[in-house]
Amino acid sequence: MADPRLKAALKAGDFVVAPGIFDMISARVADRMGFAALYATGYGTVASHLGVPDAGIATYTDMVSRMARFAQGSTTPVIADADTGYGGLLNVRHTVMGYEAGGVTAIQIEDQEVPKKCGHTPGRRVIPAEEMALKIEVAAEARRSDDFLIIARTDARTTLGLDEAIRRGKLYAKAGADIVFIESPESEEEMRRIGGEIDAPLLANNVDGGGRTPILSAETLKSIGYNVAIYPAIGFLSVAKVLEEAYGHLRQRGDSHGLDIYPFSGMNELMGFQEVWDFDAKWARPERKQAAE
């Protein structure tokens, strides 16, 4: 079931910073950090799971089990990317039911045409606003708990302009979205206008490494009307950089000496091996216990 803490944090006026997770190692590391939420990124999850671009290739079947694993393997509320809801209205209903049953706390649905594209890449096209509003109504009706939050994202800014993006944001909030996500504003001034004109909780997408939107501090975002900031790429971009350096070191030198890496003992602890060892010790046959001693 959805975790009520995220909704409570927003109601209390807390600003929520959510790091991007893309596999269970990133989820376990982030889960220890004390964040109010984790953001299960579609781009990173598709890349790590399938090794393909986030361009509408992954299906509901590909994603629902991954998102459920993130939620069930974390103690922190999980916000999960669900692309377009993977189809029409019936697909949206099915997606909401599946994500909620998996333990996700908030689901993000966008108004792109199928196949969708990553929000900070070119060539995105959107469906009519009224069709998306129906998706939001269906999503809100399909959820079993009010603690399960609906995030409505519009990609209209890049192709149709800021006025249309704001109009859509207002429409989606009226249709039942708990949080509005205007993707890819291109300046702080645009973000201030969004914060001033949309009377609903707002999400900012901080894409490290070259996104279209300026990355503002949590303090600034809160002051201009935002409530949530996601950092979807910070995890997988950091990991890719470190892997490139480590593998390059190994290829060039033929050994791993001198690398600053995570300790193997720490990884064992992170993955929960101590519980396995404790279990084995408890249930080992007497002769095996004597051999171990």
Rank of each mutant, 00 (worst) to 15 (best):
I127E: 01
L134H: 14
M132N: 02
Y172P: 01
L160F: 14
K170I: 10
A133E: 14
K174C: 08
L171G: 02
T121F: 15
D155I: 08
A140K: 15
D178Q: 06
D178S: 04
I166F: 01
A140I: 04
L171E: 07
I151V: 14
T121K: 13
V138P: 07
A129V: 10
A156P: 01
I179N: 07
A142Y: 12
L171T: 05
I179K: 07
E130C: 00
G176C: 04
G119Y: 13
V126M: 04
R143N: 04
H120C: 10
I150G: 03
A175G: 03
G169A: 13
R153T: 02
A139N: 01
P128R: 05
S145K: 05
I166S: 04
V126S: 11
D147G: 05
R167Y: 12
I150L: 10
R124K: 15
C118A: 05
K170Y: 02
D147A: 09
D163A: 14
I136S: 06
L171V: 06
E137N: 04
A152Q: 09
Y172F: 15
D147S: 08
G161S: 05
G123N: 11
S145C: 09
A129P: 08
R125H: 13
A140H: 15
L160H: 14
D155H: 07
D163I: 13
